[in-house]
């Protein structure tokens, strides 16, 4: 095993070497926190069908067009 100094950065870390641009899906607070730190964020307003209520979601799937 090589020492930590010699470890090559992973693809994920390389991503953070360049300017970070984020697509945030779901909770808008995360987008706000990143924006406050100067990160460019596009927020996607998304929630699970029927707010995550499994019974309603299952019923909706049976009532498609």
């Amino acid at each position: 095993m090589s020492g930590s100094k010699d470890r090559k950065p992973s693809a994920n870390l390389k991503l953070l070497d360049s300017e970070v641009r984020v697509v945030n899906v779901g909770l808008v607070q995360f987008a706000g926190d990143l924006r406050d730190q100067g990160v460019k964020v596009v927020h996607v307003d998304w929630a699970p069908p029927a707010g995550g209520d499994v019974k309603l979601a299952r019923l909706l799937s049976k009532l498609e067009d």
């Binding site: 929630a47 069908p49 029927a50 707010g51 309603l56 979601a57 909706l60 009532l63």
Partner: peptide, 8 residues
């Protein structure tokens, strides 16, 4: 009503 329930 389906869209209201689905999207909340």
């Amino acid at each position: 009503i389906r869209r209201v329930v689905e999207t909340g």
